[in-house]
Nucleic acid binder design. Structure first.
Lengths: 141, 141
DNA sequence: TTAAATGCAAACGCTTTGCAATTGA
DNA sequence: TCAATTGCAAAGCGTTTGCATTTAA
């Protein structure tokens, strides 16, 4: 189901601002920040405000339509939930981000549910560590 | 090796402020925030400053003596690295934190190293999700 | 003696909020 | 019509920074 329909169905208004935020999220080839969404929104709607972006993202996240991922940049990045749930290995030496399929974390998910009765929500996890290249270079400060 | 010795060994000065920050970290029964450390420091050293706490934590983290964990509270919490590396299941409905042993994540660590050539640093991961109790109550908004 | 570390105050960056004005349903 | 939503401006919050002063080694 599209974000638009999901919003309407639950009684939320479909404002132009919200539609443009959703459009920016869908158009992004990768995870996008609130600021980046605002730039796009502002281009088409000059009187719009970044607080609207934050309020919309908070709503979409609450409804499970977007996921938040913290890549350790001091800000959160957003991604539409219906897209694939890959994960990210973030090298803390060179900053490179390696994408891995959701399936890599599903054994963990199963273990946590079975052993801890905990339903982990592992969408777009950012896993810190060091990539092979940096490890071999021994660049680590 | 103690934090004190590690600092000295690498040529960093052992100031009273740093010693008190380290003491607060060791004395904490759980993960502690910069603010909480500062309160303790300030009690004993009224003219101390929170920027010193941040600078000390940044140093200790860089040297691998403490770990940072983000429990999704909008601030990072610190823990001395030499203590056990357990992980945390954070229920996003009731906020409860379930601690699990490091070993739960080691299969994942092995997989990432083998399949992705990536050395994950999984100390004090905070895994979001929902605990069994909340799931059964269906409290989810 | 002197580079490293601190205290202070101010700024920073992201995010949230109160409130009056606007608007989708 | 009218509650939901927005724009605006200001504040909130954790964190960082420039700089003069102090201090551990």
């Amino acid at each position: 189901m599209s974000c638009h329909k999901a919003l309407q169905k639950q009684g939320y208004r479909l404002t132009p601002q919200r539609m443009l935020v959703i459009e920016a999220l869908h158009g992004a080839d990768s995870h996008i920040s609130a600021e980046e969404i605002y730039v796009q929104l502002h281009r088409r709607y000059p009187y719009s405000n970044i607080s609207t972006v934050y309020r919309t993202l908070e709503l979409l996240n609450r409804l499970g339509l977007v996921t938040e991922t913290d890549f350790g940049e001091g800000r959160v990045r957003y991604h539409v939930a219906e897209k694939s749930h890959h994960h990210h290995l973030v090298c803390r030496t060179c900053g490179r981000v390696i994408d891995v399929d959701e399936s890599v974390l599903s054994p963990l998910k199963d273990t946590l549910l079975r052993e801890c009765d905990f339903a982990a929500e592992l969408r777009h996890m950012a896993v810190p560590g060091e990539c092979g290249e940096c490890r071999r270079k021994g660049k680590r400060v």
